[in-house]
Design a protein around this nucleic acid. Structure first.
Lengths: 205, 205
DNA sequence: TCCTGAATGGACTAGATGGTCCAGCCAATC
DNA sequence: GATTGGCTGGACCATCTAGTCCATTCAGGA
């Protein structure tokens, strides 16, 4: 880390992180070995350890940061322009779309659980992510004229997290939709379609 | 599995599962080897494979079931007697207490993420758990006279999941409290103390 | 008491995988 | 064009750990 990187080196490092991230998304965290990363990114063992002196842990950490920053980026431009009712609807749709696309696999959660026990540096990544996320929502709630923006922001964040958690476990996004709409009642009247027919938690598969 | 178990055998098997579960709670899933389980439960390698012919995967599966059943059991007797306003408050307190005690470690989530990629049998464990949980909440909401019990049950479940998720990531249970109270407004007016001072997502430790 | 099948102990194997090392390459700078 | 330092290739090592195997003991039924 103390060694300086040339432009080329930085590019290689980026290629490794991006490649590893893709691999981790595709399979699980424990299903990816350094050799897999090496093969997928067309690099050698020495490159891996050149750019990530802490080895696997360091690489996974970098991937975690990579994924964390993607979470908020994927919600733009909606997240920062929250305020009027339509803005919330647009944001909600973007969130639902993103997580339905992600489906049953959450690289960040997997990464966190994998690294957290031994790597203290991981906790802040997710913690900061959630904190920033909540702040954005709070600002939006304030602009929307919510009575208690802090509270509303947190309630909405929890709704997203809960909905996504259920989506991850079951493959069904109904909970995400319903919970989000319920939480958004705090700041707007935007309601979306919730699906047809009586609700069931699909077994997934 | 096709071999019959004597009383003694069943006891040994149970001892292994319980011991492994404790170990997994304490450390992470990947931080526990079969040898650790062996040592912690005073068994031999052959016993492990005698009772879990599918090896590590089978053992972890058994532990996951063990943990899943504990989730609902820990909410009793409140969960099945939901209805009147006080019942919701009692349940809420039990949930908060349980998950604050569990802190930052969720064996079931870890187990699921570990096994899910390769073991199709795992998905239904969590899926069924959530389905049963939601059903209980829905029944409670119906007894409470909610306008749309199905919806309310799901909203409340998502609030718990989201709050717990944030608790797991940050170590802070404020979100759980706030989200739960917000969701419970659907079925009762029970509100609990939310903590003092302005809210912050603690970085945890 | 004998006998069968379950229960147990523990050595051993196979293979995966994270990590090390050194030698050679390339590119910018003087 | 020489030198310095980052960049790259890939062989090699050490270790961990899931899983196998066989010998032995134990317990209950005939």
């Amino acid at each position: 880390m103390s060694t300086s990187l040339t432009r080329k080196g930085a590019a290689t490092r980026e290629r490794i992180v991006a490649g590893a991230a893709a691999l981790l998304r595709e399979r699980g965290v424990d299903e990816v070995s350094l050799d897999d990363v090496r093969a997928a990114t067309a690099t050698s063992k020495s490159q891996l350890f050149h750019y990530f002196p802490d080895g696997r842990a360091g690489l996974l950490l970098a991937v975690a940061q990579h994924e964390a920053s993607a979470v908020l980026r994927d919600q733009e431009p909606h997240l920062t322009s929250l305020g009027p009712p339509e803005s919330w609807a647009a944001w909600r749709d973007a969130v639902i779309e993103r997580y339905e696309a992600q489906g049953t696999r959450c690289p960040l959660a997997a990464l966190t659980r994998q690294l957290a026990p031994t790597n203290p540096e991981v906790r802040p990544i997710v913690s900061d992510l959630l904190e920033t996320w909540r702040t954005r929502l709070t600002e939006g709630a304030r602009r929307a004229g919510a009575a208690d923006p802090e509270r509303s922001g947190l309630v909405i964040l929890a709704a997203v997290q809960g909905g996504v958690g259920i989506l991850l476990a079951t493959g069904d996004s109904t909970a995400l939709r319903v919970a989000l709409d319920a939480a958004l009642a705090e700041v707007s009247d935007a309601k979306g379609p919730v699906g047809d027919g009586p609700f069931r938690l699909a077994g997934g598969g």
